[in-house]
Design a protein around this nucleic acid. Structure first.
Lengths: 187, 187
DNA sequence: GTCTATATCGCGATAGAC
DNA sequence: GTCTATCGCGATATAGAC
C-alpha cells in the first residue's frame, strides 16, 4: 500500500481539463488544479513545466513517431513518398478517432494567446523532427527544412479542414487532397 | 519644458536591448529596464504587453505591408505571382540591410523558449495576414491557407539560409532559389 | 515542501498637452 | 476642461530556488 494514490500525473491532467472547461484557462490557477487532484502546487510543477503544458503533454509522442518512421523507411524511398506515408501514420495514430477532444482543445487554445504560442511550438517541434529525419537521410539543410515545413503545413491545414467539417471524411483523405492541391499550385 | 522626456517607448526598447545584450534575456528584469529608461515598471507594461514583446514590437508592420500589397495587386494576378512579388517587397523592406541586427536577435531568441514561442506567433500572424489577403481576393479557405503557410515557409527557410551565409547573396535571390526548389520537389 | 523573486495587471492621482 | 501619459501603490499567480 503506497503513501500516494497512483497516477498523479493523470489526475492532475484530468483536474486541469475539467477546470479549464468549467471556468476557462486564464481563470484557473495552478493551486486550484493541484487541490482538485489532491496534490500540492509543487507536485504539479514536477509533472508539468508550466500550466500550458498540461494541454500539450502528449504531443511529443508525435515527434517520436515521426522519427521512428523516417529512420525505418527504405534507404531508396523518395522524400515525397516518405512524407505521404508518414502523414498517413500520423493521421491514423494521433488524430483519427479523437475529433471531439481535438475540437474542444482547439476552442481552448483559441481563447488564450499563451496557449496559441505553445501550440505553435509543438508544431515547430514536429517540423524539427521531420527535418532531422531528412537530414539523417542525407538531404541538404535547405531541402530538409523546406520539406519538413511543408509537411507540417499539410498536417495543420488538413486538420483544420477536418475539424471544421461535419461529414465523416477521413483526415487522411483530406491530407491527400491538400497534397494534390499543393502540387497543382506549384506544379 | 515637459514633465516627461519624450520617446518613452523608444527609450524602453533601447534600454531593454542593451540589457539583454549585456546580461541575457532571462536575467534582465522589467524593473531594471524601466529604471535604465528613467521610467517605472508600470509604464513599461503600458507600452509593451510583456517583456518578450519588446523584441518583436515592430514585426506587426510586416503584416500591414503584406495586407497593403495584396489588396493593391491587380485583380487578375495569379496567386503565385502575388507571392513572388510580395516576398520580394518583404525582403527589401524588412530584411535587407538589417542582417547584423537580425542575426543578433536570432541568437537572443535561441536562448529562451519563451522568445521562441513569441517568434512563432509573429510568424503565424504573418501567415494569417497573407491568408486573409487571399481570402479577400476570393480564394477558397483551404487554398488560401495552403498558399499562405507555404509563403511563410519560404520566407523563414530563406532567411535562415541568408543569416547563415557569410557571402553577400541577396535575400531575395535565396527566396527565388527556394521557390524553385519547392517547385522541383512538388512539381 | 516552503519560501520568494518577479511578471503582470488594477486602481486612483497627477501633470502637461490641446 | 478634456485627454492622455505617467506615477505610485498594491494584489496575485507563476515558477524556480533553497
Amino acid at each position: 500500500m503506497s503513501r500516494w494514490r497512483p497516477d498523479a500525473r493523470q489526475r492532475l491532467q484530468q483536474a486541469a481539463l475539467d477546470l479549464f472547461a468549467e471556468q476557462g484557462f486564464a481563470e484557473t490557477t495552478v493551486p486550484a488544479i493541484a487541490a482538485r487532484a489532491g496534490l500540492t502546487t509543487r507536485t504539479f510543477f514536477r509533472h508539468f513545466a508550466d500550466k500550458r503544458e498540461v494541454l500539450f503533454a502528449d504531443d511529443a509522442e508525435a515527434s517520436v513517431l515521426v522519427a521512428q518512421l523516417m529512420a525505418g523507411a527504405p534507404a531508396a524511398a523518395e522524400p515525397l513518398t516518405i512524407i505521404r506515408e508518414g502523414l498517413r501514420a500520423l493521421a491514423e495514430n494521433r488524430f483519427e478517432g479523437r475529433k471531439a477532444a481535438l475540437r474542444h482543445r482547439r476552442e481552448l487554445v483559441r481563447s488564450d494567446a499563451g496557449l496559441q504560442e505553445r501550440d505553435l511550438r509543438k508544431r515547430a517541434a514536429l517540423a524539427e523532427a521531420i527535418r532531422d529525419g531528412f537530414l539523417a537521410r542525407g538531404l541538404g539543410a535547405a531541402r530538409a527544412a523546406l520539406l519538413a515545413e511543408t509537411s507540417v503545413t499539410l498536417v495543420y491545414v488538413s486538420v483544420a479542414e477536418w475539424l471544421d467539417s461535419d461529414d465523416d471524411r477521413k483526415l487522411d483523405d483530406i491530407v491527400g487532397e491538400m497534397l494534390a492541391a499543393l502540387r497543382a499550385e506549384f506544379g
